[in-house]
Design a protein around this nucleic acid. Sequence first.
DNA 1: CCTTTGTTTCGACATCCATCGATCCCTTGC
DNA 2: GCAAGGGATCGATGGATGTCGAAACAAAGG
Lengths: 122, 122
Amino acid sequence: MSNVKVLPLLEPEAPEAVVPCCPPLTERPLTADEAEKTARMFKALGDPVRLRLFSLVASHEGGEACVCDISDVGVSQPTVSHHLKKLKEAGLLTSERRGTWVYYRVEPAVVAAMGQMLGSLG
Amino acid sequence: MSNVKVLPLLEPEAPEAVVPCCPPLTERPLTADEAEKTARMFKALGDPVRLRLFSLVASHEGGEACVCDISDVGVSQPTVSHHLKKLKEAGLLTSERRGTWVYYRVEPAVVAAMGQMLGSLG
DNA sequence: CCTTTGTTTCGACATCCATCGATCCCTTGC
DNA sequence: GCAAGGGATCGATGGATGTCGAAACAAAGG
């Protein structure tokens, strides 16, 4: 396509309203908008490779993991990168570059919100 | 920080562990098999229409809903049926025919299990 | 039997998406 | 400046998936 890299599409790191979407799924039917937003988060965990990457980050010492620590999930490196990007876009992970390596960590509020929608609070 | 409990392998006290799959995502990385299983459940909620249908059933009076009660989500009726089937295959819903109508209800244990995988991240 | 109404299945189609190799970008070290 | 290695992006591709209309199936009533 284009080599026009001047288009400002999305600001770097869309801050995004992180938490406040949606009551427990049992409380009332979701609106179309709410469902659209929320489904993105569930869809992000709806792939086996992404789910593994997510649990690798979530369970990693210090609550964060370098890409090099979690790249052994049976797919190529570009694919790993692609999935991490998806998880990031869904708001489930954040990333930070420190020197040579890029570290990913879980966004706790978002994941907690998903859990609450499923009624895990009992 | 709280618990470093030894994990009780696989048999004691599983009152209604209808879902044999998987500890909280923070506890340890999922295996490929576990991820495959679990991703199916999250994927089922990863579509806006399915998520709406699910919340319609979950929040409906009596804990169940007839297809005719929840068919107004903006897609054709065959599509509704297709999505309900997907939710059923994922183990999130069950169905029962009573006379003319078919009623769907939530499978609580499965949903609770999903919530627990996410809930301990707070 | 035939008709009506609720629900599922079938076939077809367009779109999305996971995956890869190749390539490019970034940082560090020589 | 240049080489090396970690990560991200690009372009292509095969397979999965959401959607619909038409048709089939099931139960209830005339």
